[in-house]
């Protein structure tokens, strides 16, 4: 693990499109706490599950190319990425190359570039969760979430397979919860932290995907969540864009409606560090997210937990 806060940055294809709010908020937090992101020159798409279903070699070659380019740029830098899907593809390619010298040489041949597989890959979540960065986040806070009840949603690609991801607990990850609590939110215990949102079917089978998304909202609602935090643009899109559509269906079925905005965890961090909603991209959500955020940031009640939250802020 690199000890510095300088990383070769793999933005991923959604970084300046559907994942724009993640990019903006993550870059905001990084800037505030001094994490330096150096974009990998001419990185390409990681291939995601489309490559995996098409061809095993393609699923290795695409991410390996970007990893090799990162090495070429600066062999001392670990790679950072926001998108969980990209994280998983990059980590898997590296894992394959690390299995044996044969595998590594095979990958070099595939991409026609030298690749040592020495540099590791980290997600923003893992990087910001490092103790030294938690300390920096704490020091940069100007307010807190005042006990906002947040369901941390990790999804699949950050935690599975555990041998590849090497990140947190596979069934009950805690890192995002701890970051939420760090900035004064209340991380609720719920059951869908690591259940699939159906994001990979967002376009090809939206009906099936919606069912998965609905279960996530349902469990969050039952367990009293006021907001959902995510660490992946695909999960975000799938939750945020579908909430209204789900409500339309639920209304017809006579079921209770959802009213839970989804945030990137970096947006929640950024908010407490003084980032404006525009700076963080919170104004770009499909499901209105500004009101609850505003409420959270201003002390809502004079109750004890507000005092506690101030303690945290201090």
């Amino acid at each position: 693990m690199s000890s510095t806060n300088r990383f070769a940055y793999f933005p991923g294809c959604s970084a300046d499109s559907t994942g724009i709010s993640f990019t903006k908020s993550a870059e905001f937090v990084c800037k505030r706490i001094g994490i330096e992101l150096v974009e990998i020159p001419d990185w390409c798409c990681c291939g995601t599950s489309a490559a995996l279903v098409t061809d095993k070699n393609l699923a290795v070659a695409l991410p390996a190319r970007s990893l090799a380019l990162a090495e070429k740029m600066d062999a001392d830098l670990d790679v950072a990425t926001g998108c969980a899907g990209c994280f998983n593809s990059l980590k898997s390619a590296r894992h394959f190359a690390k299995q044996s010298e044969d595998n590594r040489a095979y990958v070099e041949d595939l991409i026609d570039m030298p690749y040592s597989a020495s540099n590791d890959v980290f997600s923003f979540l893992e990087i910001m969760h490092r103790p030294e960065n938690q300390e920096l986040i704490k020091n940069n806070m100007v307010t807190t979430l005042h006990g906002l009840k947040v369901a941390s949603y990790y999804g699949c690609a950050l935690v599975r397979p555990s041998k590849v991801c090497e990140f947190d607990d596979t069934e009950d990850p805690r890192s995002m919860d701890e970051l939420i609590e760090l900035v004064g939110g209340e991380a609720i215990d719920w059951g869908y932290k690591v259940e699939c949102c159906g994001g990979s079917h967002n376009i090809s089978d939206p009906k099936a995907a919606k069912k998965l998304t609905e279960r996530i909202y349902e469990d969050a609602m039952i367990n009293g969540a006021e907001a959902i935090a995510v660490a992946c643009p695909l999960c975000f899109l799938n939750l945020d864009m579908r909430e209204k559509e789900l409500n339309a269906i639920r209304e017809a079925e006579g079921k209770s409606l959802f009213n839970i905005p989804t945030y990137y965890f970096t947006e929640l961090l950024g908010m407490t560090m003084g980032g404006s909603f525009k700076e963080l991209g919170i104004d770009k959500h499909f499901w209105p997210a500004e009101d609850i955020a505003k409420q959270a940031l201003s002390a809502r009640t004079q109750s004890d937990d507000t005092a506690e939250a101030k303690e945290v802020a201090k």
Partner: peptide, 24 residues
């Protein structure tokens, strides 16, 4: 559906090196 989606995706990546969600 799944097949069409993935073929377009990979075609997209082959042509541009990146995935363009709108085109996709």
């Amino acid at each position: 559906e799944a097949d069409i989606f993935d073929d377009i995706f990979i075609g997209n990546v082959r042509s541009f090196g990146k995935s363009n969600e709108a085109i996709l």
